[in-house]
Design a protein around this nucleic acid. Sequence first.
DNA 1: AAAGTTTCCGAAACCGGTTTCGGCAAGAGG
DNA 2: CCTCTTGCCGAAACCGGTTTCGGAAACTTT
Lengths: 371, 371
Amino acid sequence: MQTGTTKTPTSQLARTRRRVTIADVANDLGVTKSTVSRALNGYTDIAEGTRLRISRAAERLGYRPLSHAQAIRTGRVRSLGLVLQIDNEDSARPFLADFIAGVTQAASAENWTVTIATAETERGVRETLSRLVDEQKADGFILPRTRLRDKRVETLRAQNIPFVMFGRTEDPTECSWYDIKGEDAMRAATARLASQGHSRIAHVPGGGEYTYSKLRIGGYRDGLAAAGLSFDPALITAPAITHDAGEAATRSLLMMAEPPTAITFAVDRAALGAYRAVQDLGLRIGRDISVIAYDGIPEGAYADPGLTTFAVNSRQAGDRLASLLIKRIRGTAPEELRELAPATLVERGSDGPPRLTPAELAQCLKDIQKT
Amino acid sequence: MQTGTTKTPTSQLARTRRRVTIADVANDLGVTKSTVSRALNGYTDIAEGTRLRISRAAERLGYRPLSHAQAIRTGRVRSLGLVLQIDNEDSARPFLADFIAGVTQAASAENWTVTIATAETERGVRETLSRLVDEQKADGFILPRTRLRDKRVETLRAQNIPFVMFGRTEDPTECSWYDIKGEDAMRAATARLASQGHSRIAHVPGGGEYTYSKLRIGGYRDGLAAAGLSFDPALITAPAITHDAGEAATRSLLMMAEPPTAITFAVDRAALGAYRAVQDLGLRIGRDISVIAYDGIPEGAYADPGLTTFAVNSRQAGDRLASLLIKRIRGTAPEELRELAPATLVERGSDGPPRLTPAELAQCLKDIQKT
DNA sequence: AAAGTTTCCGAAACCGGTTTCGGCAAGAGG
DNA sequence: CCTCTTGCCGAAACCGGTTTCGGAAACTTT
């Protein structure tokens, strides 16, 4: 960078044997580069026999086209973009490794790569998306944590950049997605609690800006209706996606005149906060208060009692999203690329038949308060 | 892919305004592409005034060279490679998001990108490393979780591929690294416990194949020596990096004739396993048994009592590693790229003066066993 | 058998950069 | 004043692919 004309060739000694290029393959067969290129890229104006000879020669010589050499002409780099928003306490953390594993696995199966970037703010994410496209670092994007109204979607749609979402959005125009049926899970959770004998069942939702939150609330209400229980708006707390917020939400529920004997949580992490709130009051999860949550984070297994939850397979999600995005980039219509998968119930010890009625529970809590 | 000569141009409608290329900048100033290129790349055979005019014009027109267009000639794509090994229960998970945030932040500050890949096995990792280099997807690599004898290092060193390690290795030849001084942390942890009055202090190490494990054991022993305590090999358990293994290790220590009153853990996750073991015996962490660990995972704050630990700043680690790697790729000698940083003590409630002597503790445990 | 179609492939341009080479002009030296 | 450097930049090749265009050969059709 500094010595000008006498610039030192840094990586001279490296890379011993030269790569085999398309010209090598062409020479080997006595055809031209253009023939090799078209044969390998599925053009129909190449005789079947020739195509076979060429692909065999390419195989034999170990020829692998350089994606960035292709990109200079095609504008496609065969790379999937993943832009993560990392705020102070991102609840996506525990899933991240699995999710990434899924994405990279599907990508490399097609010989694509994954380019990852992070940003701190919502605006930063959008800028990063544009920059990566502008510099042709990625051909399309996977968007985790979809919001009801998602600005990333607006940005990408406006610029005609392919993308797939992990989660649904309010306006599905031009959108592709993979999502877990969180609404089904919450309905099942509520039904399960009702069938155990609970009549006052609360719900602690996730962040209101996220689509999943709204869906899970809907599932909760459907579950109540199916069980013939009336819906009490007071039993839906403020959103909670952290341990602390879950603890606070639980306390507020237990302070009610007629407290719930069971709580569904949109998010495991918040449910784990309930453990402390309940223990502090001298009660026990799974006996005095039943809890069912959603996510399937590993910590749930180590809580005491273990957290009953609907687990999502993050790895599979990543895998499917990458596959969908590749198809999207190759031209499939967005409407054809939509998939839903169920969450799977992991039965542990945090739920069961109620020991007390809501009234008894209220009395019991009042007694505790006094001492 | 199928219609041959009449191949459909998929992304025709997209990308409205054409990118500004180096030719645009050249035309704007009435110079040639080569002059612009050399001016922007710091060649010394360009007059200072010309360089200024060119860089200003480039700025004004919004010119950004396409890294893959450069790569076709230079062989460098300005991308850092990160290959993660994802096995069933990877203990690196909690740090991953922060670590990636650090890496990508430092990379984008230099206008580089991060290409991420995963593999399941050690061999898979090495194959992926080679493949990424072979296809020129990355110019160098960040290697997390360094082992004492690391095959990745052998592979990369043999092929002359730049890399930096998160952690040190036995044979430092040609190696660059960033590492946390885990040995210092363990020495401090041991010294702290000794000064609180503990005389029997145990250590639960991490996986023997990892470098950090050996270093932390060394720190533990140094701490004992500094406090004038004798070293008892029986107080070092089998390696434990999971919750379950930590629980088992703790149980085995408490079964001893002369059990320890304090335990240092190489890894937070294992320390959290100790909580269950201790609670099951009706004892309390921080009073009957003191615990100090290492890592700083968020769950430690929610344990009861909170886990005293030496926290590492994963984000900074990622940031520094990316910076080091870029320097390495640009030609700095590996020996000059080695950094160590301290872990920071987070004081919570899991340690304190011993309530019982080892003998009393043993008696107490025997009593419990009977009932 | 001549004309019109297809089929299939080579020649050459092109993508957006980098790098080599050589030459002109200005300055230095004699 | 002439030669020899040196400074500075243009011309052109090059990197490894893709794509357009056109034409020869084979195959149909009339």
